[in-house]
């Protein structure tokens, strides 16, 4: 575990936390203004982990939810990694009520399929806003894979066990979010691996230069 802690210094960690704060604040403001999603994002938390410990860390973090729905999306640029949005399983129905614009004819699609698609759309926008603002502040522009969703599983089944190769380390950026109007909340984890760390250190330094 120890070598993880050396990857980025406490100071760098603090800067990153501050940047995330700014980024998520902007993301929340834009989400409200642009697409009428009122979302509160908590002060982010940063953990440095050995990649083998990542699945158990994620499980512990979401253990208060018995069943979860997870939206997973990969992003790549200089800033490269995976985003996991973890909702309580019941959130799908609430989100359909909140965001479904019902202009499409769903025909024979069951309500489950509708929930799944809504989770994906909401996840795509929420992840896009957070990752987008963060990478923008760090001077990068990223590309996204289509989101994938796992619904209503116990968190033991839903969390992938092989997110990164063993032996590598991971930086986990965690925030708790909550939609104002409804009682929908969840966790957003951004997990980035070794590959991005050199770039990240450099970007953090560049970011600080403008204040020095």
């Amino acid at each position: 575990m120890d070598y993880c802690l050396d990857i980025i210094s406490d100071e760098e960690k603090e800067i990153l936390q501050e940047i995330m704060n700014i980024a998520f604040g902007k993301a929340a403001a834009d989400l409200a203004e642009v697409i009428n999603i009122f979302v509160v994002l908590s002060v982010p938390n940063i953990e440095l982990l050995n990649s083998q410990d990542l699945p158990s860390y994620l499980k512990t973090q979401v253990s208060e939810y018995e069943r979860v729905s997870i939206v997973e999306q990969n992003f790549w640029g200089d800033f490269k990694g995976s985003a996991f949005l973890v909702f309580q399983a019941s959130a799908g129905r609430e989100l359909v009520a909140l965001f479904g614009d019902n202009s499409d004819d769903f025909g024979s699609e069951s309500i489950d399929a509708l929930e799944k698609e809504t989770l994906m759309e909401v996840g795509n926008i929420l992840i896009g806003a957070c990752v987008g603002k963060l990478s923008e502040l760090l001077g990068d522009a990223v590309t996204y894979s289509p989101p994938r969703v796992v619904t209503e599983n116990t968190h033991n089944d839903a969390i992938p066990t092989n997110i990164f190769e063993s032996g590598s380390s991971a930086i986990v950026l965690k925030t708790v979010f909550c939609f104002n109007e409804r009682n929908v909340n969840g966790f957003l984890f951004l997990v980035t691996s070794n590959d991005s760390i050199l770039w990240l250190k450099k970007s953090l330094a560049t970011f600080m230069e403008q204040y020095e």
Partner: peptide, 19 residues
Amino acid sequence: KNCKAVLSFGNFAFFSQKL
């Protein structure tokens, strides 16, 4: 909504055949 999101966040929007 999707256009606005892409223009302001620079994210991607996916319009699946399913939906």
